[in-house]
């Protein structure tokens, strides 16, 4: 029993950075903008969060710094692809490379630094309850933040007027413009939100999951988050399912290594990425599924003629 609970807790912990980053990217893509720079924004968020935490001693200020840093990088992307209508794929790839380099440079002096990061909740009398204790009261606060964000985005996209507007802009920016919406402003908002989410995902890695900074510590999670959005066919609940799946695979890899399974560790480390490729291949076998749900204007620049 305890092992099962433990497994759920660990899986959620591994899934949280994927969930945060993928939810942000989902909102960005729903507005019709493809930002491939998630990895770069996560790394920049991670390093800025870590530095802020070292400087101020407050991990929560660190998380805020991570969000601002992610959004800042996203703002650069926004100027490029929205205002200057640059190619979104090329700009996003460039943003990723830029973020990797920038974070490595900014974090040079902090590689061996230690912080007192964000610890899992420990509420006397509650956390020690059997089963529900560790699940409901014993995880890292950012895990709950991610889950609340999931519910909020689901509700926002499908139950509110603002969400309807975001979906409409993603489907046809021309039509949204024609009925008087400011497409650029809406897309900027979604891009910045996506950047902030990626930044928080990075902060979770450097302050909560493994409270330290090392170069390239996201290890491709940004790319997996991108794949997750397609895997989820742009639906928030399925992002959770995908994040748990990939979190679980990541975990299985560590567990297998710890248990001394006689396989090269490098092969095991490939598992999450192999799983990504396999799942994407399976999803793509049904083009209807993607066609029906994909934001129709995804990746296509739009600029009103005035």
């Amino acid at each position: 029993m305890d092992t099962a609970v433990q497994l759920v807790v660990l899986t959620l912990a591994a899934a949280t950075p994927l969930l945060l980053a993928a939810l942000g990217e989902l909102v960005t893509e729903r507005s019709g903008v493809l930002n491939l720079g998630v990895e770069g924004m996560m790394l920049t968020g991670a390093v800025c969060a870590f530095i802020a935490c070292v400087k101020t001693g407050s991990p929560w200020l660190g998380v805020a710094a991570g969000a601002v840093a992610g959004a800042g990088l996203a703002a650069i992307f926004g100027v490029l692809v929205l205002t200057l209508t640059a190619n979104q794929v090329a700009s996003g790839l460039a943003l990723s490379l830029f973020g990797v380099g920038l974070s490595a440079f900014a974090g040079l002096d902090y590689v061996s630094a230690v912080v007192d990061g964000i610890r899992p909740l420990a509420i006397p009398g509650l956390t020690t309850l059997p089963v529900v204790g560790p699940l409901l009261f014993g995880q890292n606060p950012l895990v709950y933040v991610a889950l609340v964000l999931l519910v909020a985005i689901q509700w926002m996209l499908h139950r509110t007027h603002a969400g309807l507007v975001v979906r409409a802009v993603g489907e046809s920016p021309e039509s949204a413009d024609a009925i008087g919406y400011n497409v650029l402003a809406i897309r900027y908002g979604c891009v910045l939100f996506g950047g902030a989410c990626a930044g928080v995902a990075g902060a979770y890695l450097s302050l909560a999951y493994t409270p330290m900074w090392s170069e390239n510590m996201t290890a491709g999670r940004g790319w997996i988050a991108l794949a997750l959005v397609v895997f989820a066919t742009w639906k928030p609940w399925r992002v959770l399912a995908g994040a748990v799946l990939f979190g679980g695979v990541t975990l299985a890899q560590f567990q297998a290594q710890a248990a001394g399974v006689d396989v090269e560790p490098q092969l095991l480390a490939m598992l999450p990425y192999v799983a990504t490729i396999v799942v994407l291949a399976i999803i793509s076998r049904n083009p209807m599924l993607i066609l029906r749900n994909a934001p129709a204007s995804l990746g296509r620049p739009f600029r009103p003629d005035r």
Partner: peptide
Amino acid sequence: PAAARALGIGMVFQHFSLFETLTVADNIAL
């Protein structure tokens, strides 16, 4: 277009400005 609509000007486009994946009510609510 927002300013035009505030002046009471409406336009029906040759290539419609509708959102295909949404319902009629959603389109009008937008």
